[in-house]
């Protein structure tokens, strides 16, 4: 079953009179339970593509379907609802709220879910336990290592049980050992049935993925080709 269908997507940025074509006619289908890596050199358009997939940034043209929902036919608020239900984001810089504890950061997506405080706590603790942070519920982000912060970021992304995880350079700020741990978490999440799409430079991360999409100059140069870069 296709979870994400990207059809002929283009994205242009205008800077004064200069038009930059970040994406040129991208077509990708991501099956449910896929673990896909978007690879490419810096500036190739992979992060732009991820944000378009994530219903964060409308394309200049083309269509993005998630679970057969035409994402950009929805208004802003409906797109926000779609993100809340379908997508969990993981960022390179973790994007944790610095004044909230690990537990509170993980509870953030639940704050708009209507769940009771008790239900939120239970869910947040469950996912923090899952990423191995059961002893660090009440730590602030600056009291956690980079790897631990990214685990909190992953826990936050999955706490709502979205079917799709989008990760933008999730190991970009981590050392190789910690990167492996984080990729292991993504792999186990994928094995549990989540669809994972990551943007990465790091070829060592490709050991975990099922499919690689290479992007260069805003175009797909190949799929399942580990040597494209």
């Amino acid at each position: 079953m296709v979870l994400v269908e990207i059809s002929n997507v283009t994205k242009e940025f205008t800077n004064g009179n200069k038009i930059t074509h970040a994406l040129n006619g991208i077509n990708i289908s991501v099956e449910a339970r896929d673990f896909t890596a978007l690879m490419g050199p810096s500036g190739s358009g992979k992060s732009t593509l991820l944000s378009i997939m994530g219903a964060l940034h409308p394309p200049s043209s083309g269509k993005v379907d998630i679970d057969n929902i035409d994402v950009y036919s929805l208004n802003n608020e409906r797109r926000a609802d779609l993100r809340s239900i379908y997508i969990g984001f993981v960022f390179q810089q973790f994007q944790l709220v610095p004044y909230l504890t690990a537990l509170e950061n993980v509870m953030l997506p639940l704050a708009i879910s209507g769940l009771s405080h008790r239900q939120q706590l239970d869910k947040a603790k469950t996912v923090l336990d899952k990423v191995g942070l059961q002893a660090k519920y009440n730590r602030l982000p600056n009291q956690l290592s980079g790897g631990e912060q990214q685990r909190v970021g992953i826990a936050r992304a999955i706490v709502n049980k979205p079917p799709l995880i989008l990760a933008d350079e999730p190991t970009g700020s981590l050392d190789s050992a910690t990167s492996r741990e984080i990729m292991d978490i993504f792999k186990s999440l994928n094995e549990e049935g989540l669809t994972v799409i990551i943007v990465t430079h790091d070829r060592s991360n490709l050991h975990h993925v099922k499919k690689v999409v290479c992007i260069k100059d805003g175009k797909i140069c190949s799929t399942e080709d580990y040597r494209c870069n």
């Binding site: 926000a80 779609l82 809340s84 994007q95 953030l108 997506p109 708009i112």
Partner: peptide, 9 residues
Amino acid sequence: AFRAMGYRS
């Protein structure tokens, strides 16, 4: 980050 998590404007 809030917006990415699904927070409405």
